[in-house]
Amino acid sequence: MSDILERILMLKDTPFFSAVNTDDLHVVAQEIQEEAYLSGDRVFDIYDPSDRVYIIRSGKVGISIEEDPTRKEFITTLGERECFGEMGVLDDEPRSATVHVIEDAVLLVLEKTKLRGLIATYPELSLGIMRSLTARLREANRRQT
């Protein structure tokens, strides 16, 4: 149980799930798997199919948009409690970047099919996700203006 609660908190801290209520997040937390990656690993490559969303439990990853997935020129780095790969699981587009593990990382992984199944069963989940995405969009707009 303790692990589930920590996962709920972790999900709540990510921008993708921040607006989802904790009781809805509880079901998401139950479907999440944990995976360990070593420094130097690639979580996925650019143009790979978008099949999972990731949340960093510990460690650090770098995001590269280079055509060559082996090149490590990062446009940004992400750390603990940050989320990546979330757009692809919603719009089905292939990965738009390669993710390199910079420091040994433990990632929480949610399969696209599971996420969609959860959304079908718990529609309020999608409302929360929409709220989160809208908040990000508003923030981006605000920064732009």
């Binding site: 303790s2 609660l5 908190l9 709540k12 904790t22 009781d23």
Partner: peptide
């Protein structure tokens, strides 16, 4: 601490 934080969040919700 996670338990305190979660309780606070749930109460807030």
């Amino acid at each position: 601490a996670p338990h305190f934080r979660l309780m606070r969040i749930v109460l807030g919700e």
